[in-house]
Design a binder for these strands. Structure first.
Lengths: 142, 142
DNA sequence: TATTGTTATACTCTATAACTATA
DNA sequence: TATAGTTATAGAGTATAACAATA
């Protein structure tokens, strides 16, 4: 085992732990990861058609229909008629959806503080991560 | 946005990129992530019963039945009678499964070298990660 | 009685293809 | 003709519950 492999194993453990933390936290709000990605998009980019959501999430329009169905049932989003295109639907966050998202955003900041608040080598860490991200982007593009 | 929040966002981007890289790489071998977890377990811990696999993967025995069905069809694993317990089945890697796993292991080392090979602040990075992992484990236990 | 694995059933996420309404 | 969204169908991964064979 090389030193590099040890580092990758640490990173992979981080991936697993962060995913578990996220999934667990979302489940408390009755959200799955795919549904959370959709409401997160609405939160940051505003009301959109389902076609736009399908494009942004890189899934099929049919898939978005299903995700929106579930989110409407759960009271997180609403389907509204598009003001100019009668074929399209505008999906927007409900009041409840928006307030849950606000809590999620706050928890995101709290988690960041909890993870990185007491770290002495902060700049070296972020610098190292940036470097890893560049390598990984190149890896994926190939 | 605090400095800590920026760091968490970098880490989350890392999670996304590594997951995509892994999924894409596994798909080339006709493996899904759940199936890959199962064969990875066999590779590192040897032949096991489905009950043991269910326990280790933290899924139901019924779920393991389905995953093993798929892996048997794909020629990665075989069901064999348990030597002493006639209720149980021993799942083991086939020759093909073992050779694909050997390639995966090699790619793992190559990826590690590609990501961390040219990093100057190596020790600080790993030290920082260790710290983050400790915080995260505490977060999840709570 | 308890355990191992399977059948039966159901839900979520995903995809393709055919269709309706509108552009 | 092309686009937006839905119905129909299918497959993977997940779960619970009931059951058969064995311990």
């Amino acid at each position: 085992m090389t030193k590099q492999t040890d580092a990758l194993d640490r990173v992979l453990e981080l991936v697993v732990l962060l995913s578990e933390d996220m999934t667990q936290s979302l489940a408390r709000d009755g959200l799955s990861v795919p549904r959370a990605k959709l409401v997160w998009l609405l939160h940051h980019s505003g009301p959109q058609t389902q076609a736009a959501l399908a494009e942004a999430l890189k899934v099929t329009p049919r898939n978005v229909t299903g995700l929106v169905d579930g989110l409407v049932s759960a009271g997180y989003v609403a389907r509204e008629p598009h003001p100019t295109d009668r074929r399209a639907l505008l999906i927007s966050l409900t009041g409840r959806g928006a307030s849950v998202l606000a809590v999620m955003e706050r928890q995101h900041v709290e988690l960041a503080r909890s993870l990185f608040g007491g770290m002495p080598q902060f700049d070296a860490f972020v610098g190292g991560l940036e470097h890893v991200l560049d390598r990984l982007r190149a890896e994926l593009a190939a």
